[in-house]
Design a protein around this nucleic acid. Structure first.
Lengths: 339, 339
DNA sequence: TCCAATCGTCGAACCGGTTCGAATGGCGTG
DNA sequence: CACGCCATTCGAACCGGTTCGACGATTGGA
């Protein structure tokens, strides 16, 4: 491996001069700088990341803590990861990926060994056990997902309460009076996925205000259970004219269920979901949906994290940013059928 | 940050003694070892990864080079990543994730700055431009995907030719005489996805031997195009009694298409795909399929890579391992309908 | 003409580990 | 009692960068 010593020798200067020639932190004559650059190029020199990190205590690596839980929709998580990864690359950072059942352990390992300059936590739960560990580590962290206690971290999430309101408003405006909301599985809620509650409460609040009937159920997260469940729900609630889905697996299963029952959308049933544009395209999900914007959230988290890393600003106040939901119209919302 | 010097001071020993107490590379009295361990525990000591890497020139990090190409099915790629990540963790390695349009640049960056001990390349093409860069880097590499030139690397892939044979054999044994094979998009082939050819040639060989008609087409990779295309194909080839899919998007779209045409599987049409068990479960894909085993391939790649990293065996001969395909029966293959 | 300021460069220390050679002390043995 | 051996421990060098203080050579101003 070629080191800066080799470059310095080839250029006939001292190591420190070579270093300054690269960093430009002191004035170096142009002839020397060119000679150093030429030598580096000829020898194929790249600085050793470990050595540099040791001295500067900056690794230019961001830890990405993801978790793939059995009752969650893996491809949705992927979208967040891609958003984070792309942004990091744009800002000159690499991603150390920790997909670990033991998220706390992984977090501690990365931070305490100084492998990373900061971390992004995905899928943060109401009382996420990783948060105390993050606060103990003296490294900045950005979250995707809204915990109860946001002290000391930057937080980004979709405004799920507003999403619930938006979906109900939209359906009621079309004339629907009996709506069924299928949320994520109860396990997700039990694990602290408070966004399910926030969404549901936003929806219930608006339903009450409009005086319409909103039935809330937790949906299964696996196939084919969720399909059977949807079928059963449609049988049990014949008066329902609109379906709200806060559950990707349900959205994926619904076309098959509708086909089986011979129902057309939106003529027989209106449907509004909550998933990303990417997901809709990959799986041909034909429903209007609130955009969950994983790429945007991932990007915001990384940008804020890098700002905090580079501007050394643990003092600067921390952010909690809830992104306003937008509804992507795919034509699955219409007036209720006339009986 | 607490360093080994702090620990040594707290334990009343020299830095080297503390280091030996941890590594056990020299005999240290039990009382001293215990004192050092206690001090380390009290102070919350974790060795600095950069410093250790600098001295040992081992980072315990593996580079994972993935690429999400526009005409490929992202969730399928995710399965490989998870296999790699899980195995790495089991073996005590972390994953540096590089999802980069410029795969060559990313590879060079990771290897020449010594951020990683070795790399896993996913989605390797016939003449993958990353391979020359990998050979130039003096780091071991393991590939998932079979390139033309396998020198200097360990290669793992599904035996796609055998998969093609297996699928045809199975259909012919049931009595099918007119089969339609929908492969990946032509763009994938153009980019060097030779596995599409290998699969197709295996299938054609067997079809010829059995004297049955096999029509091969390249399918679109995006929704909803692939669905429309499948619909058109079924119209244009009314004699076809069995469908072979080497295209995840097609498998995802097919249930909708079949529903639209009122076709039942396997009574009206037999279907056999090629995708992983995971994918089948996530999207409720109801078709029998050759298991693409991304988790197994990812695992094998990492295990071999770590073996080569740790046993310093660039001399040991390199492997090319084609995994034998297995067919997972989901009941979508039956005899052709009687006219 | 002399002194101070500036420019360009070098040497050395340091980051936090690991590891080699040597020093210390206790023990058994001839 | 002298010797050598072994078990422990320490000091110092090194990995490959960065950075501070110092120094010689110019240059400018008084």
């Amino acid at each position: 491996m070629v080191t800066i010593t080799d470059v310095a020798r080839a250029a006939g200067v001292s190591r420190s001069t070579a270093s300054y020639a690269f960093s430009g932190r002191r004035t170096i004559s142009t002839v020397v700088r060119d000679r150093v650059a030429a030598a580096a190029h000829d020898l194929g020199y790249t600085p050793n990341a470990g050595a540099r990190a040791l001295k500067t205590s900056r690794t230019h690596v961001i830890g990405l803590l993801a978790q793939f839980l059995p009752d969650e929709f893996a491809p949705a998580m992927l979208q967040y990861m891609l958003g984070v990864s792309d942004t990091a690359r744009d800002l000159g950072y690499d991603i150390l990926l920790a997909i670990d059942d033991d998220g706390v352990g992984a977090l501690r390992r990365l931070t305490s060994s100084r492998m990373v300059d900061g971390v992004v936590l995905l899928n943060v739960a109401e009382d996420d056990p990783r948060l105390p560990a993050l606060r103990a580590a003296h490294q900045p962290g950005a979250l995707v997902g809204l915990p109860r206690d946001c002290r000391g971290v930057d937080v980004f999430d979709l405004d799920f309460a507003e999403a619930g309101r938006l979906m109900v408003d939209r359906l009621v405006r079309q004339g629907h009076r009996e709506i069924l909301l299928v949320s994520q599985s109860e396990d997700v809620v039990a694990r602290g996925g408070a966004y399910v509650w926030r969404h549901q409460e936003g929806a219930l609040e608006r339903a009450a205000r409009h005086g319409v009937q909103l039935t809330c159920v937790f949906g299964a997260s696996a196939q084919p259970e969720i399909g059977h469940q949807l079928d059963r729900l449609l049988t049990d609630h014949p008066g329902v004219t609109a379906l709200m889905l806060n559950n990707e697996a349900a959205a994926a299963a619904l076309p098959g269920v509708l086909g089986g029952r011979g129902l057309r959308v939106p003529e027989d049933l209106s449907v509004v979901g909550r998933y990303s544009r990417e997901l809709a395209e990959t799986f041909a999900l034909p429903f209007s949906a609130v955009e969950s914007a994983p790429d945007v959230l991932g990007r915001m988290a990384v940008e804020q994290l890098v700002r905090r890393i580079e501007r050394r600003g643990p003092d600067e106040p921390h952010t909690v940013r809830l992104v306003a939901p937008t509804l992507v119209d795919r034509g699955s919302i219409g007036p209720p059928p006339t009986p």
